[in-house]
Design a protein around this nucleic acid. Structure first.
Lengths: 226, 226
DNA sequence: AGCCTGAACATTGTAAACAATCATGGTTGA
DNA sequence: TCAACCATGATTGTTTACAATGTTCAGGCT
């Protein structure tokens, strides 16, 4: 996510990645000094990064207390889900432009990575490539602005899933992606849109807003020392 | 737009308001020291505000050169327009919930303010209330997350309109709002959605991406000295 | 025993001084 | 006359130290 300086981008990306892959649990405290050591940076830069991330609702700043990984409320969770569904579903129904050949190629490459991650049982890679598929799709059919919006929503969804995922369920089936691409190439917008709606509803149905685990994590074990 | 501290919110809001009402021209430089004096604040806080606003694409930070009011490129302009249209139109077609009685009441009040601003020939108030109408509508039919997204897009649209508005045209006709409310209360989603599409397309048709005026402004005359 | 209180510690927030970078205007030379 | 160049001033970027706030833990009181 575009920061100004290079080093800050690095740090922000590392934090976002940790959130995306659900290594960083919602509610975790993010002490400035500790982060500065982990990333071999200084407090000022960490501070800027945290402020930036707070704008994306990934981090919550509590004045006088510090920064924490956000814990979206059930209401916020529902709103994020609904917003993402609204945007992705309607973009597939009314794409700004149809899928180009090179776009399809990009998507296929990502699907190959997905398959590999699945074969390797690499959970982090699976989440990452799955998100990448959605983002690339949005970018091909829509534009950069919408892509950025969805990018933020996907990050927030990671927090939501970590918080509210019902155990015993296997969320996020990725077999849909194949069908989705076929429908898009066949220009069957209505069907593609409906499939996307089901796809996202599938994720929602795996959530349970009654429980709120407070699992906090220890940073240094999670954020690799650069 | 929610900042952490109170004073910073005040400053950010003042800047956003100036952008929204098109007093702050795209490209204007925003020197830290000068802003600090205008808002009787200090550089550190101004700096935080500018960083925040840069995350909303309202301000562009150029390393070593400082902060400037963003100048969206024609491409970015088109993308912002398209994104806003996508979201607003599809939300009206598939609202998350139907308009409540109190929601209608809120909208009516805003429309009254719009009428007053129109009667007074108060351009700033007209822009402000018009935006408020859209935002309230989105919030009633959708949720807070979508509202925040649209809020940012409306701000960016202010910059775009300032940059690319074709003169001799009267953009943003507000007579549509009345009809829109009627259609919504009658639960005529398809018609409401179509009207919104036309409404937003009307704005787009007033833009001309060929000219790029570089009008820069002087801050102290525009930002009231608190 | 449980809880309130207060002091010591740790962390965040703020300010100011310093360093680095960029815009400027004037000078020099062809 | 014009262009390139250097010196100067202004603005941004970074670091440091210090102030304010929150947290924790020990001790004493009820």
């Amino acid at each position: 996510m575009g920061s100004t300086a290079k080093e800050e981008t690095r740090i922000a990306d590392a934090l976002c990645k940790a959130v995306l892959e659900r290594r960083l649990a919602p509610g975790s405290k993010l002490p400035e000094e500790e982060l500065a050591q982990i990333f071999r940076s200084n407090r000022a830069k960490i501070r800027r990064v945290l402020l930036s991330l707070s704008r994306y609702h990934i981090v919550t700043l509590e004045p006088g207390r510090g920064a924490f990984v956000s814990r979206p409320s059930p209401q916020e969770a529902r709103d994020v889900l609904a917003s993402r569904r609204l945007i992705e579903v309607s973009l597939l129904a009314n794409p700004h432009r149809s899928l180009s050949a090179e776009g399809a190629e990009r998507l296929r490459k990502i699907m190959a990575q997905e398959a590999k991650a699945h074969a390797d049982h690499d959970a982090a890679a699976m989440i990452h490539t799955s998100g990448q598929f959605h983002l690339t799709l949005i970018e091909e059919l829509g534009n950069t602005v919408i892509k950025n919006i969805i990018e933020e929503l996907i990050l927030r969804m990671s927090l939501i899933i970590t918080l509210y995922e019902r155990h015993n369920t296997t969320c996020c089936l990725s077999s849909d992606h194949n069908d989705l691409l076929d429908l898009l190439l066949a220009e069957k917008h209505a069907k593609a849109s409906a499939l996307m709606a089901r796809h996202l509803e599938g994720i929602e149905s795996c959530l349970d807003f009654h429980r709120e685990p407070a699992s906090t994590t220890i940073l240094s074990q999670i954020l690799k020392p650069v």
